[in-house]
Nucleic acid binder design. Structure first.
Lengths: 106, 106
DNA sequence: TGGTTATATGACTATATTACCAAATAGCCA
DNA sequence: TGGCTATTTGGTAATATAGTCATATAACCA
């Protein structure tokens, strides 16, 4: 595969990888409704604040969210809301798989 | 977070994770044009056949592709072409990040 | 049947990811 | 200033992922 093409898939994979964790998908979903500070997300997720902070830095490094400091708090928001369209498709994959599983039992 | 909600994000993450590799993104892209057998994909990717076979099994287990044996060959095809819409958004993320990087240098 | 090709799988090593704790940093307010 | 809260970062152990080689399986053909 040609070098440029390869680099393009690697760039895409870095972004997909940043989304590839349940907590980070939750964060994306949550930020699609409203910007949130780290402490709010930490509360909702129920994990260590440092864990949430690291997940946010993964999303930030991938360019999926941006942060905004307000006093001692840091608010995060989505940079590119089109990410959300993806979830609909993911649900289709899940549903299709489930239907095929079901079909096998008939 | 409630148990059902958590399970939903985990199910989504399993699928996103299956996409989170440059070789697998290439395969998805390629299959969007045409069904391909393992040997064709192996040739294009330029990796060990066992490596490609394993990538395909990751995609298959996630329900993203299905296989069809024809003689000694196994052809793979997409189950859910909507996955492709996602790539447009990924490109937007990449482009937006690049523009912001650029803006910092001005 | 025996040889060849196409795939898949198991074992293994190298590397990456995750979560947690502890500690550092920064803002806020009494 | 000193203490409190919010966030980030470094260290570390457990786990997951990727790639390769060797091997297993199946189809095909001479």
């Amino acid at each position: 595969m040609d070098v440029r093409k390869k680099a393009r898939y690697e760039a895409r994979a870095r972004i997909v990888k940043a989304l590839a964790h349940p907590t980070r998908l939750f964060i994306i979903d949550e930020l699609s409704e409203n910007r949130r500070c780290v402490c709010e997300l930490t509360e909702m997720i129920g994990a260590d604040a440092s864990t949430v902070s690291k997940h946010l830095s993964v999303l930030r490094n991938a360019g999926l969210v941006k942060d905004d400091k307000v006093g001692a708090s840091v608010y995060y928001e989505l940079t590119t809301p089109c990410i959300l369209n993806f979830f609909g498709c993911i649900e289709t994959v899940i549903k299709t798989s489930a239907e095929q599983q079901l079909a096998l039992t008939e």
